[in-house]
Design a protein around this nucleic acid. Sequence first.
DNA 1: TGGAAATACGAAAACGATTAAGCGACATGC
DNA 2: GCATGTCGCTTAATCGTTTTCGTATTTCCA
Lengths: 346, 346
Amino acid sequence: MVSMKDISAVCGVSVATVSKALNDQSDIGQETKKRIRQVAEEMGYFPNTAAKMLKTNRSYNIGVLFNHEDYSGLTHDYYAFVLDSLKRTVEEKGYDITFVNTSDRRAGAMSYLEHCKSRGFDGVAIVCTDFYSPEILQLVRGTIPIITLDHLFNNVCAVMSNNVQGMQDLLTYIYKKGHRRVAYIHGADSAVTQSRLSSFYRTAAQLGLTIPDEYIRMSPYRDTNGAYAETVRLLELREPPTCILYPDDFSAFGGFNAIQERGMRIPDDISIAGYDGIRVARHIEPTLTTLRQDTEELGKMVGEKLISLIEHPKITLVETLVVEGHVFEGNSVADINVKSMKSHIR
Amino acid sequence: MVSMKDISAVCGVSVATVSKALNDQSDIGQETKKRIRQVAEEMGYFPNTAAKMLKTNRSYNIGVLFNHEDYSGLTHDYYAFVLDSLKRTVEEKGYDITFVNTSDRRAGAMSYLEHCKSRGFDGVAIVCTDFYSPEILQLVRGTIPIITLDHLFNNVCAVMSNNVQGMQDLLTYIYKKGHRRVAYIHGADSAVTQSRLSSFYRTAAQLGLTIPDEYIRMSPYRDTNGAYAETVRLLELREPPTCILYPDDFSAFGGFNAIQERGMRIPDDISIAGYDGIRVARHIEPTLTTLRQDTEELGKMVGEKLISLIEHPKITLVETLVVEGHVFEGNSVADINVKSMKSHIR
DNA sequence: TGGAAATACGAAAACGATTAAGCGACATGC
DNA sequence: GCATGTCGCTTAATCGTTTTCGTATTTCCA
């Protein structure tokens, strides 16, 4: 690898001058600068990142924390799309992305925070993990700029998909379609689940819906079998719902199957709705009505805010950025309004 | 950050000694080593990766090349699962993963190879990209250990999903189910496509199947609309196929919809099969018969071979590792054997 | 007991960059 | 005419490690 020393030798100047020329510093002659840059170009020079890091304490490298263990991480459409958008956003600004090592559990391995400091990450995006683990707490309390996705820590920047508004929009949409008996199979306990669930209750109350307790069930996220089982139980009620909400689109497929196996049709006999807006939901028949989260925007926000935190720490607000989703209108929710029936007839 | 110098001061030894103690070198006393290690632990020491890299030319960092532009990259189930497995594999061995920056197209930005050298990657896994681009060629010809997924370069290690065997197994399975009129909508031209297509023809010949030209169609990977359109054309043939193979599971959904919209049922009226074995294929009804690629094994192979290439360059063979997939038997392919009809009746 | 070998440690150079301080030459101001 | 300022460059220190080589001390054996 050609270094500044090599260039300085060729140009007959000191390495300091080369450094200044390449970094566009002020105290250098136009002529010299031009010549040095040209020679550097010809010799195929590129900087040694390690040396630069050592001296400047800047890595132009961002850590991304993705935990697999209990979470689906990378293989979850939602996170994959957010990461994809995040990657493009920061790469365009000259940053690279490195995963925070979460699998090295050998003796003497470093904690997340230590690992991040050791690698010299300029900032860390915590995307998908157990936010209550001690290691994560240590990390967010450290001195590295941090941003979280879909979780709030005190005094830490966060990007959140608006689950409250999302659930409200989705339920309101369903209400407007004429549904009055709406069941909600929610996911396992988490901040996200709580937002959605309380929004569900509040919106139902505002709309004047009464939700019997047996309409509220739990099934872990992305567990099609669980969703299947809960769907069966809902269908067996004396007064079954006319519409079922699922924790996510994936779970909705479980419900989908339970319903079809009993010879019922969607949406004619019963309506369903998912959450997330994963691709395949738009490509099956009937297309799934769901709350589509804006993963492109979420990833972009995470990246831009984190870089702002890194580059302008003083003037960057510690705040929570909220990204809106929107109802994706598939055809899994039937319109059962009397009004609309009439209009159909007319 | 506490450095070796700090530790040396506390212990009253030189930094050289500290370095040796922490790196388990030979020429150091047992007593001193123990003491230094203990102090290091107490002071919360961890190494400065940049300094270490600078000195040793080892980064314990692996570059992963994922291009989004025309390829679905991260958001493609297949690649996401491979990456997930790769990540776990290398992290357990103490390596981190950094994406090769493919989005920085600003003036003066580095080529892939320069970027990799600049970051000091110990090795690079080329997972998903346009393998024919000049930048990629420059990269594989460089001096960094390289491994590719699903593409062969001369003198470069590769991990391949066995597309030849896979297609053979899939078609044979379908044949055994009694199908004699099998259509294949293949993906856009690539090494993978060619393997599958030639395997399809060869297997068909071996089985004594005659495949009319109009049964072979093209639709880009993961293009549901394209698959939809081609399916319609196949269904409109004077003698339509009894089974249609798709480029991938996602495309199969396009066919799925085309078929259902025409009031035909799967598999009673027509059979379909996908390729890849993405999750959702197992969770819709009818479950999709497909060739499931072993993403877990693929990612593991990529990681292990690359690390072997890095750590034992002399004794590591430059070879192509082939990973077998297997037919996932859903219920989208009907058994139309006379024999089995009989056995049904019996 | 003397000398060779083994052992434990330190001094210093190096990796490739950045940057503060300094220095000569020349122009400017009063 | 002398202090002052500006420009363009060099010198040298520094970031935190690793590693070579040298040296002092101990051990071992003839």
